[in-house]
């Protein structure tokens, strides 16, 4: 392990962290602008031109609020909750390949922090850990509404993880590898996995909505029933962390869907670009294409939020267990049969 390697990875991690935070920040702005657009309003337009400084104003507001720890709350766990939510949201970016290798000063740099050969499972593990922040925070608040919300979050995440795992199994049957780098490389040009696994993609998409607690599955923060949900007792930047973690989760799951199903940095005609432009510019265009896909997914998340009303709790569980899981199992069987017939 030489020093340049460490510096290179450290720089990459720092850049990814900064990008996640900035995108999460401007997602809050974009969410309000998209909501305004869909509801025929103007949205935030006071801070800066087009209201572009609104996220900064919100951030300053969050920091300036009074910090309150409820008297009977479990103090340490109350503080660990938001931190854990933020941590689990951020570590997912480590295995996503952000672009093809670039060469700087004769040194090949992979735009991926680490290419572990169980990358898909790592992502799945990060998703399954995500619920701890909500659960611990909700329980430590010592508030009945928070506790109810924490329990809802846990049961919702566990239920939808099953369908998500099953849809990933069908995908792995097609790709034959769990390394995200190879999965993306296989989707060169137009061979995106979404064309081979359309049903799997739809199941994965629905589960991603449920796992990030986004509408129409935002039952843990259903304000008509639970006041504020698991963060009822939180104030100041601790509340900010929970809200922020949700947007980072949205960014990471958009990146995962773009990587697994929509070809990551691949785009049609990339060979032509590589030959005619070449050098470091072609990989950078690929990275930009990946970000365009991610932004499209983030927009889709917001579009759905302002279009579909929230599910009822029994509808949510019914959809997860009776709808998605049987479909996901059928998807595995069909995929397996097709592969078996093709290899016969």
């Amino acid at each position: 392990m030489d020093l340049t390697f460490v510096i290179e990875k450290f720089a990459l991690v720092t850049i990814l962290f900064a990008i996640s935070l900035v995108i999460a920040m401007y997602s809050t702005y974009a969410e309000r602008k998209v909501a305004a657009f869909l509801q025929d309003r103007l949205g935030p337009d006071r801070a800066g031109i087009f209201g572009l400084l609104q996220p900064l104003a919100d951030g300053v507001k969050m920091f300036m609020k009074e910090e309150i720890v409820p008297t009977n709350a479990n103090k340490w766990l109350f503080m660990i909750g938001p931190g854990l939510a933020m941590l689990c949201a951020c570590i997912g970016t480590a295995v996503i390949p952000w672009g093809q290798d670039i060469v700087i000063g004769g040194r090949t740099i992979a735009l991926q922090v680490t290419d572990i050969n169980v990358g898909v499972l790592y992502l799945f593990g990060v998703v399954s850990l995500g619920v701890y922040g909500v659960m611990i925070g909700g329980w430590a608040s010592n508030n009945k509404y928070s506790l109810l919300s924490a329990i809802r979050a846990a049961s919702q995440n566990i239920s939808y993880e099953i369908a998500m795992g099953l849809s990933i199994i069908a995908l792995l049957l097609v790709t034959n590898t769990m390394s995200l780098k190879e999965i993306v490389a296989q989707q060169h040009g137009w061979h995106w996995n979404v064309f081979y696994q359309p049903l799997g993609f739809i199941i994965f998409l629905i589960c991603a909505f449920a796992e990030t607690n986004r509408a129409p599955f935002d039952l843990p923060e259903c304000e008509t029933e639970l006041i504020g949900g698991y963060h009822t007792e939180y104030s100041s930047m601790k509340l900010g962390f929970y809200l922020f973690a949700e947007y980072i989760n949205m960014f990471v799951s958009s990146a995962v869907m773009a990587t697994l199903y929509f070809g990551g940095y691949n785009y049609p005609g990339m060979d032509w670009v590589a030959i005619h432009i070449g050098g470091n510019l072609a990989p950078i265009i690929g990275t930009l294409v990946l970000f365009v896909k991610i932004f499209a997914f983030i927009f889709f998340f917001m579009w759905v939020r302002w279009t579909i009303p929230r599910f009822r709790y029994d509808q949510l569980m019914g959809l997860g267990w009776r709808g998605l899981i049987p479909f996901a199992i059928a998807n595995i069987i069909i995929t397996g049969l097709v592969i078996a017939i093709k290899n016969f």
């Binding site: 399954s128 850990l129 619920v131 701890y132 659960m135 329980w139 846990a154 566990i158 993880e161």
Partner: peptide, 10 residues
């Protein structure tokens, strides 16, 4: 860590 312990906690 992700499933069984969540159930325990639950």
């Amino acid at each position: 860590m992700g499933a069984i312990m969540v159930l325990f906690l639950f």
